[in-house]
Design a protein around this nucleic acid. Structure first.
Length: 365
DNA sequence: TAGGCCATCTGGTCCT
DNA sequence: AGGACCAGATGGCCTA
């Protein structure tokens, strides 16, 4: 019977892929089906046998019905709803086709295909969402943001970056974090704060007191690169960093997206599956445009991962026109101090909106 | 146990 | 007719 059901070769792979279904999909354990689709047939053998009988009966009935249909003057497979197909006058209005077993079977097959497509579509959507999770300032494979929170955080992040670009000024840390956390739930706020190595309660309450200054012990904000602080407390970088509030995190599994950017490929510790994949985006509020580390041997390396910033009049220690280039080169194992520049070093000397073209090019590469 | 989140199914609508 | 997209319904899982 199943061979008949799967007689269409084009349908076979997809149908088999989701072969957990048979007749009544609502009665299926959808979880098990999702977890082990390939095993679906085996799991449902008993039911499928019953289904086979059911469909075989349907098939016979359908064949008989089809034979009758061929004798029909209209050539219609069926029509007239529940009324007999006798000498009765035809009804007006939209015809409600009778659901013959064959039609039911086709409808089921259509529905199952649609379900399969819908699953695939949702999986694709979730994959895209996962990718988005990796580029917002808070990524943890073990503690995933919910879908809605991911979208909210992404929106806030885009907004924050836009504001930075628009104003060309360094936002204070507190307002930056508040922007990021706008509309987020408290757990997500904590999570983001954790990723930023801030105590959310502090930054939420001390802004007024501190006039927006970083509430931590180091107001000069010399902590290493913001905002992608190490949050993985076990990492050497984390252990060496002076982040007194890190213990307030719900978990130390929060990803240090920043460090992962630069240390991920170099340090075996970051090669764990916990922090795989593309990581968070390149912008740091302290003015560092950093990029995901990639193989510098890549032919596109320079094109994709160099971002040049032009300095205004700089102290003599820095040559005029010096480009701040954040590439993967020389960034392994952490951020080179010469590349971690205070924000005031990145002010644009152009009046135009800073770096729009470059940043657009960067993000679209 | 309630509520949040999620995956899946399902039927409707629109478009090709 | 079939596919894409959408929203509602449903049930499972997890956590406070």
């Amino acid at each position: 019977m199943l061979t008949r059901l799967f007689s269409d070769p084009s349908l076979l792979p997809e149908v088999q892929k989701y072969s957990g279904w048979v007749e009544d999909s609502e009665s299926e354990d959808t979880k098990a089906k999702d977890d082990d689709l390939d095993r679906g047939c085996a799991l449902k053998d008993e039911k499928m046998e019953e289904e086979d009988e059911f469909l075989e009966d349907d098939s016979r009935a359908a064949s008989e019905m089809a034979a009758e249909d061929e004798e029909d003057d209209e050539g219609e497979e069926d029509e007239g709803g529940e009324e007999n197909e006798g000498d009765r006058p035809k009804k007006r209005g939209p015809k409600k086709r009778k659901m013959t077993p064959a039609r039911i079977e086709r409808s089921k097959l259509r529905r199952q295909k649609a379900n399969s497509r819908e699953r695939t579509r949702m999986h694709d959507l979730n994959s895209a969402l996962d990718n988005l999770r990796k580029v917002v300032p808070c990524y943890s494979k073990t503690q995933k943001l919910s879908k809605i929170e991911t979208l909210r955080l992404a929106k806030n992040y885009i907004w924050a970056l836009s504001e930075i670009l628009r104003s060309g000024k360094r936002p204070d840390v507190v307002s930056y974090v508040q922007t990021l956390c706008k509309g987020l739930s408290q757990p997500t706020t904590n999570l983001v704060a954790g990723c930023l190595q801030l105590n959310s309660r502090n930054f939420l309450t001390e802004q007024c007191q501190e006039g927006g200054r970083f509430p931590g012990p180091n107001p000069s904000f010399s902590m290493h690169p913001y905002p992608y602080q190490c949050s993985r407390l076990s990492s050497p970088q984390c252990q060496s960093s002076s982040m007194p509030n890190s213990h307030t995190l719900r978990t130390h599994a929060y990803c240090s997206t920043y460090e992962s950017l630069y240390a991920g490929n170099a340090s075996p510790e970051y090669n764990s599956s916990e922090y795989e994949g593309p990581l968070s985006p390149p912008l740091c509020v302290n003015g560092n445009f950093s990029v995901k580390q990639q193989d510098s041997s890549s032919p596109d390396h320079d094109k994709n991962f160099h971002y040049s910033m032009h300095y205004p009049a700089l102290p003599s220690s820095r040559p005029p026109g010096h480009n701040l280039v954040f590439s993967s080169t020389g960034m392994r194992g952490g951020v080179h101090s010469e590349n971690v520049l205070p924000y005031h070093d990145m002010h644009m000397h152009h009046d135009r909106p800073p770096m729009y073209e470059e940043l657009n090019a960067f993000f679209h590469n």
